[in-house]
């Protein structure tokens, strides 16, 4: 009898075969969580430009107005919204509230996330683009 190696067991949470809405919600929650942690470090790294004077900061801002960066802003909003809204869903479910409606709650979270992201993306590209 041999246990699977630790890395193989740990990677099991990304295996979506046979999973339903709850499993998908869990996977997206982890991925957005990891993404937001990475973003936090990038954000702090970028903020160090403030200490290098107005030229360095202005150059970055000019680059941040490029369509690619604006699209990344949209992606960031998508991740934040999903993580926050699903966080509310998970908090309720974790206390045993609304368990029979968990799939509908997930689709509600997805719909609200996409709707608000679309509005935000429109605003970003209209104002900054």
């Amino acid at each position: 009898m041999k246990e699977a190696p630790r890395w193989k067991r740990a990677s099991g949470w990304v295996d979506l075969r046979g999973r339903r809405e709850g499993g998908l919600a869990f996977l997206l929650m982890r991925l957005t969580g990891i993404g937001l942690v990475i973003y936090l470090f990038i954000h702090l790294y970028v903020l160090r430009l403030l200490a290098q004077g107005p030229e360095a900061w202005d150059a970055f801002i000019a680059m941040a107005k490029s369509p690619l960066f604006l699209a990344l802003d949209g992606l960031l909003i998508l991740g934040i919204l999903y993580h926050a809204l699903n966080g509310v869903r998970v908090t309720l479910l974790g206390l045993g509230i609304g368990v029979p409606h968990q799939a509908r709650l997930f689709w509600g979270v997805m719909a609200l996330t996409l709707l608000v992201t679309a509005i935000a993306a429109y605003a970003i590209f209209t104002i900054a683009g």
């Binding site: 999973r19 339903r20 809405e21 709850g22 499993g23 919600a25 869990f26 929650m29 998970v90 479910l93 974790g94 045993g96 368990v99 968990q102």
Partner: peptide
């Protein structure tokens, strides 16, 4: 982490998530 898959697959309606 409230993935709810336990309740979804339980063949005896134990509903472990709740």
């Amino acid at each position: 982490h409230s993935a709810m898959e336990c309740t979804a697959v339980c063949p005896s309606n134990v509903d472990p998530a709740s």
